[in-house]
Amino acid sequence: MKIAESLPESFQRFFINVAGIGRFTKQFFRQVFKPPFEFREILNQAYRLGYDSLFLVGITGFIIGMVMTLQTKPTLEQFGAESWLPSMVSVSIIREIGPVLTALICAGKVGSGIGAELGSMKVSEQIDAMTVSGANAFNYLVVTRVIATTITVPILVYYADAISLVGSYVGVNIEGNVSPSLFYKQSLDILVFSDIVPATIKTLFFGFAIGIVGCYKGATADKGTLGVGSAANSAVVISSLMIFVIDLIAVQLTQLFIR
C-alpha cells in the first residue's frame, strides 16, 4: 500500500490499467462460451467496424506500398539488385508494416470509437439500464465487440497487404516496366509459411487488444462528457502501446521457434 502510494501518479495509473485490463480479459474468457450468444450483434459490429475502416486502411496501404518501393529502389540500384525490389517490399509489408500499420489505424479509428461509444453509454446509465433489465451487458456489449475486432483486424490486414502490393506495383512501374505477372511472381514467390502464419497470428492479438482496451476504457469511463473524451483518448494510447509490445513479443517468439 505504502509503496504503491509513493509511486508517481502516472505509474499508479499504469498499474491500475494493467490490472483492470487483465480482469476484463479474464471476464471475457469466462463469458465468451456462455449463452446467450449474440451472433447477430457480433456480425453487426464486425460489419460496422470493418466497413468503416476500409477506405482509410486501403488508401494508407496503397501509399505505403508505393512509397516503400520508391524509397528502396535507388539503394538497390546502387548494388545492381533492382530485380529484388518486389520481393523485398512484399516481405517487409507482409511481415511487419501491413499488420502494425493497419492495427495502429484500427486502434485510432475503431478503438477510440468503441471507447467513446461505451463511455457515453456508461455515463448516460445505458449500461446500468441493460444490467437491471436482467440482460448480461458484458456479453452484449463487450464480448461481441472483442470478437468482432479479433475477426475484423486480420481481414483488414490482408486487405491492406494486397492493396500495398498494388501500390508497390505502381511504384515499380513509374520508371520502368515490369509486367503484372512478373511482379507478382517476384513478390509472392519469396513468401513462405514463416512469413504468413506468424503475421496472421499476431494480427489476431492486435485485434483482441484493440477490442478489449476500447471496451475497458469505455466501461470504466468517469461521469461527465470529459470522461467520454478521455476514455476514447486513452483507449487509443493504450492499445497502440499494446500493439508494439505484442509485436515485439511476436518477433522474439517467431525467431525462437521458426528460425
Binding site: 461509444e117 457515453s120 453509454m121 448516460s124 446509465e125 445505458q126 446500468d128 439500464a129 441493460m130 444490467t131 437491471v132 433489465s133 436482467g134 440482460a135 448480461n136
Partner: peptide, 24 residues
C-alpha cells in the same frame, strides 16, 4: 449467481434519472 439475480431484476423495474434509452 447471475441467473438468480437477473430473475429478481426482471421483477424490479428501474426508471433512470436520465431515461437511459439505448441511443443506437
Amino acid at each position: 449467481a447471475d441467473e438468480e439475480l437477473n430473475k429478481l431484476r426482471r421483477r424490479v423495474g428501474f426508471l433512470f434519472q436520465g431515461g437511459a434509452l439505448y441511443d443506437s
